[in-house]
Design a binder for these strands. Structure first.
Lengths: 204, 204
DNA sequence: GTCTATAAAAAGATAGAC
DNA sequence: GTCTATCTTTTTATAGAC
């Protein structure tokens, strides 16, 4: 059974599941070799599929790349939503934003790698959609910082540049944070949070 | 006149200058389009040269990529050298390391972009050389942090993970720090340093 | 749904004239 | 030193049989 939703043709649940598996497997290959350095033939081998069958699921190579991006942003924004819903002080919210973000990076190292390395390969509307979603998340961080300055929990920092410091510190863990390693998301989020909170706290 | 130095054939000064110009121009193209997405034909157009002439200077596309990497690491390590030579307290040294690093990122945005995005494209011996140099710099940061803990200037932080926080915060500026923009290297290094120093300072 | 065969373009690199 | 022409391989994507 297939339905029309939002102008996009939806396929069967089985098709969607298979597609998702292909997206995940391909993310691993892209992360290891790079997007442009990976041929469709290699994707076929990794997914144990012929070219005809693969294209039946992915549409195009770039659409596959966009699907990896969406997977990351879906998870990241869901985490930000949970934090916003729970509420609490700016300090508490920023700490939980860090926990959630590092959790995504830790759970999806390949997807995140591709997300942070290959976004310039997206073109046209796909590039724009990604840009908007990314900006949306960054704004969440800035808003929490602004709230903390206004409530005088934080000292008088610049929200924009401080958000960049926070984002860099956390995002850059994609280079070494992996499941199965000696570090968990929490064991990194904890010291990061301590440095950052103490760093922007109002001096007593 | 040509000499043999360290097993590598050196060319004339004119040749070296021309080559360096090609490296710089190509860095801009790689930064905009990606290494694998850029064809040698496009490099020829950007450098206003035919294929024969281009290959006369670059040897291979990957050798060109390696040259961009070296340009960045040469500058970064020179900055670290200056900091080490000047000496001073761990706090002062870490602050100056930040100034120097952001200065390189600000002055060579294209080279740094390529450096941070395309290093997986290096293979064999070239990949190894880059890995070693990069590790060498990271160790400098860890050493300063360790010294600060031992002198009790800093609280009891983990040097390895704290170095990653510092590196991420600074390196990640490659996404938005550019010459001609509203921000200078110093105007970013200053707030970053304040956050980080206060963040790892011994609580009074 | 999945395969094989193939198209059509572009890739990196080299040869040899000038 | 620089050019044009060319070699070989690989690229993304499609056609059509099953």
């Amino acid at each position: 059974m297939s339905r029309e939703v939002g102008g996009e043709a939806r396929r069967s649940t089985k098709w969607e599941l298979r597609r998702q598996a292909i997206v995940d497997t391909s993310a691993r290959v892209f992360a290891q070799q790079g997007y442009h350095a990976t041929g469709v033939t290699e994707l076929c081998a990794a997914n144990d599929l012929g070219k005809g069958a693969l294209y039946h699921y992915i549409g195009s190579k770039e659409e596959l790349l966009a699907a990896i991006h969406d997977r990351v942003m879906d998870e990241v924004m869901a985490g930000a939503e949970r934090v916003a819903d729970t509420g609490g002080s700016p300090t508490g919210q920023l700490a939980r934003l860090g926990e959630e973000l590092l959790d995504v990076i830790h759970r999806y190292p390949d997807h995140v790698w591709v997300f942070l390395h290959e976004f310039p390969a997206l073109t046209g509307e796909r590039a724009e959609r990604f840009r908007v979603r990314r900006r949306e998340y960054e704004k969440r961080v800035e808003d929490v910082l602004r709230a903390g300055v206004e409530s005088a929990e934080f000292r008088h920092i610049d929200p924009w540049i401080t958000a960049r410091a926070w984002l860099g510190m956390h995002n850059y863990t994609y280079l070494w944070l992996r499941p199965g390693g000696r570090l968990t998301a929490h064991s990194v989020a904890q010291p990061f949070s301590q440095i950052f909170m103490q760093g922007i706290a109002r001096q007593s």
